[in-house]
């Protein structure tokens, strides 16, 4: 009998601690599949952030190191500059990459650092208990916007991917989602392309992934998948935002 589905080699045999319906487990799965398929397990370093995915290092069976909040791109820069033979990815949330780490992200992109940022956008601060994120939608209720995000007081949802796309050292940026089998497949394709651009030494790559957080959104997993389609993609449309890799799609 042919085995058609199995645990990727670079995904440890450890149960995920993530909440039911959380997007992190899906992204971890997709990434470890790619690490296997692209034969990267022994030459890639991951930088997870403080936040729910801080424990990513318990699941990815590759070298990993913790980073201070927001500094992933700077830490990855240091690793890559010190040892360019290795591949480096950061795994960052919206607060991490688009608030406290805005400067590190933009400048790493501007230098065209050969690193890949996996940017999980769930429109909320997850681990700290559902506070407003830079990507929180207008009028979205969070624990620090109990009356809904008022753009006059709290500003607008930050479109980090579009901002980074303006920077010349960024070569590949795509926004995807993990709220349907089709979107998950697209996410995998996008991450593959981002990692390939790093292998090819082209520059900075970033994949923004709209990811459900049913717990803090106070929804069922199914409702949260639907909310991404109905609400989040209005503010954060899916698709390739920038591609100057000069490559056609792999499949």
């Amino acid at each position: 009998m042919r085995k058609v589905y199995t645990r990727p080699r670079s995904l440890k045999r450890v149960p995920f601690h993530y909440c039911p319906g959380c997007g992190h487990s899906i992204v971890h799965r997709v990434m470890t599949e790619l690490i296997d398929e692209m034969h990267l397990q022994d030459r890639i370093i991951g930088i997870p952030p403080p936040g729910c995915s801080v424990f990513a290092y318990h699941y990815f069976d590759v070298d990993m190191a913790e980073s201070a909040h927001g500094r992933g791109a700077a830490v990855a820069t240091g690793i890559k500059r010190a040892y360019p033979e290795v591949m480096v990815f950061t795994y960052q949330g919206d607060g991490d990459l688009a608030a406290i780490g805005t400067a590190e992200t933009i400048h790493a992109a501007n230098r065209g650092e050969r690193i890949t940022a996996i940017f999980i956008n769930n429109a909320v601060y997850g681990m700290t208990g559902g506070q407003m994120a830079p990507t929180t939608l207008s009028e979205q209720v969070t624990t620090t916007t109990p009356y809904g995000r008022d753009v006059n007081l709290e500003g607008y949802p930050v479109k980090m991917s579009e901002m980074v796309a303006l920077v010349r050292g960024a070569v590949y940026i795509e926004r995807t989602a993990v709220n349907s089998p089709a979107n998950i497949r697209k996410t995998k394709k996008a991450i593959r392309k981002a990692l390939q651009s790093q292998i090819d030494g082209l520059g900075f790559s970033l994949v923004e992934i709209l990811s459900p957080c049913p717990t803090n959104w106070k929804m069922t997993p199914l409702e949260s998948w639907q909310w991404i389609d109905k609400e989040m993609t209005k503010e954060f449309p899916l698709g390739v935002i920038k591609d100057i890799t000069g490559k056609t799609d792999a499949d």
Partner: peptide, 26 residues
Amino acid sequence: CSFIQAESEIAAINMVYGASLAGSRA
């Protein structure tokens, strides 16, 4: 060897952290 004029002191020390992770004298 590598030299970067970083975007901030915070970024600089975190780059040092990264380089040290990779085994470099930083």
